[in-house]
Design a protein around this nucleic acid. Structure first.
Lengths: 197, 197
DNA sequence: CCGTTCATGTAATCTGTTACATGATTTA
DNA sequence: TAAATCATGTAACAGATTACATGAACGG
């Protein structure tokens, strides 16, 4: 289960369930999402397995926190996962299924609008990643040329997001162009196509 | 639920659960996967809702088949889904999480090997899509310049796969290059970096 | 007769989401 | 004093996978 290993990786820096949720939302949401209602029981399971250890700590606001950190056993499990095969779960893209069946609407203008909305979505996610990149560049003058191992791996992960989203935007642009060209992508009507020119 | 709508879209051409499973495995697996144990109950649900209608039919091998087709009500539901917003579920990429935490191994050679294995994976999926494209081009001499509405939408969906996988391969190549360059991507050791040049 | 393909399903389990429940503390 | 944030959890449901169960017909 990937969530377990992701929590393990994150808990190399100690933190509470609540802290971890913020990390998902603010930093790694573009490749993994998790809800508190899933995080808390998973932390419990990992602690019973001795992969992490939790200790109660006070908090300024609200009631007490429970702060977890990875154990040596947990670190071994994490490394095993990292040394293993890359895990490719099968991907599910509803928006692509929608495109696949959209001939049903029989209206290329609707398809074009659909691609326009998708373009907006991907472009804004791309902008968000580019903003993160800018932030990193500002914080580290050597970025991205000289990086320590940790920054290097974060950089490689970020590059996937950038290249992937650029490809998505390019896909939408290509499709929109094709769907906007008059008479393009449409088979000529039968009464005009029947004879050779 | 997307699976329901995908089955609806596929059942514009009548078919059995068994037939549909083949379509998932052979044609649309690159954007949606489904097991028989999920398909059969879903077909039952759709039939009770009158979105599809099933009739028993004989089969050569084995016992009888149950062949389903979309109803006018089902077609309305399908169109509603297609006219709605593009559906972006949050994506989960375990392999990317692995990269993100791989600094833990403290060995860039292992990271490089990991990217090598990923490259192989993405490249072979890309080759499979390119083969599909070739097949289409062979079957239709006008491909991809002049296409009817159905072929056009299938083409647009295929383009997503091609662009996306090309980006993935490019990502791996870029990373491998970076990880192979001697002393590159590695911060100089502290005892050498402490003083200015 | 044995393995493969055709064909349909159920049961148990896993992973993840939504909704609910509780309560302290700070800020407007 | 009301809303926001901090903080932890449970319960119910939804979606998907794996394992199990059954059986006919065909090819070698």
């Amino acid at each position: 289960m990937s969530l377990e290993h992701i929590l393990l990786g994150l808990l190399r820096q100690p933190g509470s369930g609540y802290d971890l949720k913020k990390v998902f939302d603010e930093r790694i949401g573009y490749f993994w999402a998790a809800e508190l209602s899933q995080i808390y029981p998973t932390l419990g399971r990992l602690e019973r397995r001795r992969w992490i250890r939790g200790r109660n700590a006070p908090s300024k606001r609200g009631s007490g926190r429970r702060v977890y950190a990875i154990t040596p056993t947990g670190r071994r499990a994490l490394r095993e996962w990292l040394r293993g095969e890359p895990q490719f779960g099968d991907e599910r893209f509803s928006f692509l299924a929608q495109v696949y069946f959209m001939d049903e609407l029989g209206d290329l203008k609707l398809t074009r609008k659909f691609f326009g909305r998708m373009r907006d979505h991907f472009a804004s996610k791309l902008a968000a990643l580019r903003a993160i990149e800018c932030q990193w560049a500002k914080a580290d003058p050597k970025y991205p040329d000289v990086l320590g191992p940790e920054e290097l791996h974060l950089h490689l992960a970020l590059r996937k997001g950038l290249l992937s989203l650029e490809a998505h935007v390019a896909w939408c642009d290509e499709a929109i162009q094709r769907l906007s060209a008059p008479r393009h992508g449409v088979k000529p009507a039968r009464h005009r196509a029947r004879r050779n020119p």
